[in-house]
Amino acid sequence: MINIDQKQFPRSSVFIGELESLNDRFIVAQIKTMLNNFGDEYVTFLEKVLFLANTSKVSPVDSILDYTTVFLREQVRFQQTDSYSHESFDEVYDEVYNNPDVMEGFYLDGLLLTQACWEIHYHIHRFFCNHFLPRCKGKAQGLEIGFGHGLYLYEILQQCQNKGWARCVIYGLDISEYSLKYATRLLKQSFSEDLFILKIGDIQNELNFPEQSMEFGLMAEVIEHIHSPDQALLRMRHCLKSDSPLYVVTPMNSNAVDHITNFQSIDEIEKLIISTGFVLETKEVFSVKQFQPESKDRTETLCAVFRAL
């Protein structure tokens, strides 16, 4: 049984208690490990994620369980077929990004909650906080493609607020109107609306920002969702000033319901990004097996900060 301070972490206490009552292995095992390894740092983050989640339609426990089991169903299929479930962007757009039952049902909340419930995602988030956030300086203007639930934008704005930076304007572009609605709600809980500008758009078609207008960029879990990652990276490069950092997270062998492009190796992903006008500054590669050695899940994820040439 996991014991945490109910007064200090009320949401986490209820959430973990409900998960434990269902099964002490499924997800709970990962939460236990993160609590043991990171203590209050971890549970403070879990509490924040639960505060940010939209629990009006589906409980956080159901969101994380539905998101996790849908992902695992696809991973089982990937093990059996060695190919992703979807090849067509339009098909995924109709079934996922433009489907309120999925996006507002379990997808956005579930994906947000994985940041604190899946070890691999928690480590990726720590990488972001340790290696990319310090590169987002005061008065800078940045752009995130595929902001999804909006947690990265939240972290950047929170840093600006904590450091007393007057203005750190961030732009966000996402394909889904439901992401726009979700992330706007999430950010408005804590920040003034003039600090962020979120829009619907498709980086596969165009990116309407002036050349060299941005001082940092984010493309976290984006290029595996589209058909021509190189074109998207070139569009992002066009918007970034030279020497600006670009944060990239890209998994391989990870058959999420909306992934259409798989990569043969982490090296292939790195070379692709470098070929579009970036140099690698720092990286870590995280795999499910690293955290669960017995797992048959072959997911590996490149987590890196590149610099625009």
Binding site: T69, Q75, E294
Partner: peptide, 18 residues
């Protein structure tokens, strides 16, 4: 239960369910 069977992890659990 899962602790009695080698390899009964979360992926195998979902494979079983499907």
């Amino acid at each position: 239960s899962a602790k009695d069977v080698d390899g009964w992890d979360s992926v195998a659990h979902v494979m079983l369910i499907t």
